[in-house]
Design a protein around this nucleic acid. Sequence first.
DNA 1: TTTCAGTCAATATA
DNA 2: TATATTGACTGAAA
Length: 408
Amino acid sequence: WLTSLKSSRRARKCAPNSALGQRLFGETILGLTQGSVSDLLARPKPWHKLSLKGREPFVRMQLWLNDPNNVEKLMDMKRMEKKAYMKRRHSSVSDSQSCESSSAGIDYSQGASPQPQHQLKKPRVVLAPEEKEALKRAYQQKPYPSPKTIEELATQLNLKTSTVINWFHNYRSRIRRELFIEEIQAGSQSQAGSSDSPSARSSRAAHSSEGDSCDGVDTEGPPEGKPSGPEADEYSNATTKSQGGPAESAFEAGEEALQGARSSEKAEPFQAESLEDTDDEGRLRAQRQSSPPASQRPGEALETLPNSATEGDASTSAASTSVLTGESSYKSKESSEKISSVPSTSSTPAAGSQKANSLQSLFGFSEAASSRNTRDSSLRKKKAANLNNIIHRLEKAASREEAVEWEF
DNA sequence: TTTCAGTCAATATA
DNA sequence: TATATTGACTGAAA
């Protein structure tokens, strides 16, 4: 597996032959590109904030997790892909040779440019740090600048107007997502009553420092980094929802949606809220009740997901109780190593751990003790917790008897 | 028309 | 080489 050769030496060591890459997983299972998968895993949105389309990848993920032979099938796909690639490569080598020999007869007068495709392709704009800083400062003053302001900014920075517009769109959108995560973190921290723990502080510090991305909302808006203007309303709605009700994240709700869809065809397929009363949900609830005390509120975001596979293992249980919070126990290499040794409850422990390793590699977070900056470590923690949840579900799925139809 | 969610894909980083 | 970041784009909603 190519992924097993990635920078994570530990992952390589743990799962030399079973690593799943974001690209393969995304393109094969989710129908997304690698970048989208990375984004999705690093910054999942609360389920209730996802549109129907946004929920699709999580439902697909859940379907895949429910397939007992998921990893094996993916491996087969990979093998086939590799075979096809080798075949293509082989034939293209001979093709190019024949092309070269025949190209002498090609009439180049057809196009003025020898490589029109290259000319059509717009070069990617890369904003310089000072340009970004200037845009951030502008955002700080006006998150929703008028066309005139945009025009001025574009002129000042020597950028296209569309680039400035896009930058504001992207920045607002990405800040919003960071805020969702922060909000969930805040909720789980107050829940766990450990908001003053060093790790909690460092997590928050990491977030605020990362965000220069949040500087815009900190200064002008209300306290707690909430944005002003139209976004403030939306933000407080999200806040209210996540605090008053479940800040359910996509990973958990995806399963509920799936189960609900199975149990009731009439129900709106991905409306998690409408699925609360299904049998499977009841089963979920029962499992929740047996979860460690850290997770009290039913329907809490991923942090409340019980991990039956890891019950008894303090470090992993702790990790599973704080998904998305950056508050997991994956603070060190030591704890990270514990993840890889999560005991499997599946009927085939070896297969289970292989799957776990594959997924661990997919979510690529194993080098917790690296010397990265705090932002990376915060992200890793989030992903670690997400992964733990996935592993748990995978193992649950592996031990499930019902066969789920596999579909590519 | 504007804003947003979701995504792609080029590029940067590890 | 795998993953993370980010400018640009699309389609839907307001």
